[in-house]
Amino acid sequence: MTTSNILQYESKIWATADLLRGCGIKESEWPSYMMPFFALVMIESRLLRMLDEYKAEIGEEEWAEIDKEDQIELIRDKGQGYNTYIFEKNQTLKDICKNDKSFNIDFEAYLHGFDSETKDLLGVDATDGEKFLDIKGVITKLNAKKVLLGYTKEWSGIDLKPFNNSDITTLEEHIKRRWADISAETAGEQYTPDDVIGLIAEIIASKIEESDRLLKIYDCTCGGGNLLFGVEDRINEKFNRFTQTYGQDWNDALY
């Protein structure tokens, strides 16, 4: 997949705001409603892609012969995130949206099925004083307007699994630039050009060596994570190493 391919999703993602407009949510508030769900589909796609890559590495037949509990332990040991619905029940956000009668219960369980770091990132249990990706608060507001299921369905139809982390964060960069036009809160953000990311990623990858140790990658001013994931993708292209990314941004939230 190429960057041009993934940018075709920009209009589809932006179209989710039509439902927000329809229920009277102000344009200036759209980013706060869209960002948590965009993060959600990005995270899910990354977990699904990680699982497919792991199966390919081990072999589909060999993977199928591994006990379910051992599969779960192997996935957890990778340290790249977890969700009980995805890995234990083989259900995605799109699957959950198919049953409108049990949706609210299933969606809440799905969100609480993430690992603790991901739940903190999304704001699954955010308190009133927390502002970073408050998906809990957004869900409450959408429920009150009776559009939560419809809104979640719109996002669940956006399949980012075929794209790598760098491609996805390039898409995020384009979306956030549009958010910046309507929100003073994001107007001051800066974006790293793709060619600069490529150069930095190549320089860093040239300093890495093969090893069976977990490689941790940290960016103290990661913004949308485009540089952070660009470096990770380049390292993964050159080496067979487990990697874990950390970034600091938006109200000093760590993810």
Rank of each mutant, 00 (worst) to 15 (best):
D181R: 08
E73I: 07
D52L: 13
V138G: 04
K68W: 14
D128G: 15
A201E: 07
Y151F: 11
E27W: 01
L48G: 11
K68P: 15
Q80Y: 04
S32L: 05
D18F: 09
A109M: 13
L215S: 05
K78C: 00
N240F: 03
G157Q: 09
E173K: 07
K89I: 09
Q91D: 07
S211N: 04
E117I: 09
N226Y: 10
M34C: 13
I58D: 00
I235L: 05
I43C: 07
R21E: 05
L215T: 08
M34V: 07
D233F: 13
D195M: 04
N99V: 11
D106H: 15
L51T: 09
E173A: 08
S206Y: 00
L111P: 04
E44L: 05
I86S: 07
K78I: 11
A201W: 05
Q248F: 12
G198T: 14
G123L: 07
R21V: 01
E232P: 06
Q244K: 15
G247H: 07
Y191I: 10
N5T: 05
K176I: 00
N236C: 11
A109E: 13
L148H: 08
I135E: 01
L7K: 10
E172W: 00
F132S: 11
D128Y: 09
A205P: 01
Y110Q: 00
A187E: 14
E117K: 11
G81W: 04
G188K: 15
A126C: 06
H112M: 13
G247S: 11
I43G: 01
N164A: 08
Q244F: 06
L227N: 13
W30P: 01
G59D: 06
I235G: 09
G157H: 09
I66G: 06
K146F: 05
E57C: 05
E185W: 15
I13Q: 02
D18S: 06
T2A: 11
A144T: 08
I6C: 00
R213V: 00
L48S: 10
L142N: 01
Y85D: 08
L40G: 09
D95K: 14
L40Y: 10
D249R: 12
M1R: 05
K153N: 01
D100V: 07
D167E: 13
K145S: 03
G224L: 03
I168L: 02
P162C: 04
K26G: 01
G224V: 11
R234F: 12
A39N: 15
M34W: 03
K207G: 00
D159H: 05
P162I: 08
L199W: 08
D249N: 10
G137R: 05
A144R: 13
W63A: 06
L214R: 12
K161W: 03
I86W: 07
L227Q: 10
C222P: 14
A39H: 13
K145G: 02
I200R: 03
I175M: 04
E154M: 06
F87W: 11
A17Q: 05
D252Y: 15
L74Y: 10
F38A: 04
I72V: 11
K101T: 01
K68G: 09
T3C: 03
M34P: 05
T84F: 14
T140Y: 08
I158L: 14
L160P: 04
I96W: 08
I66V: 10
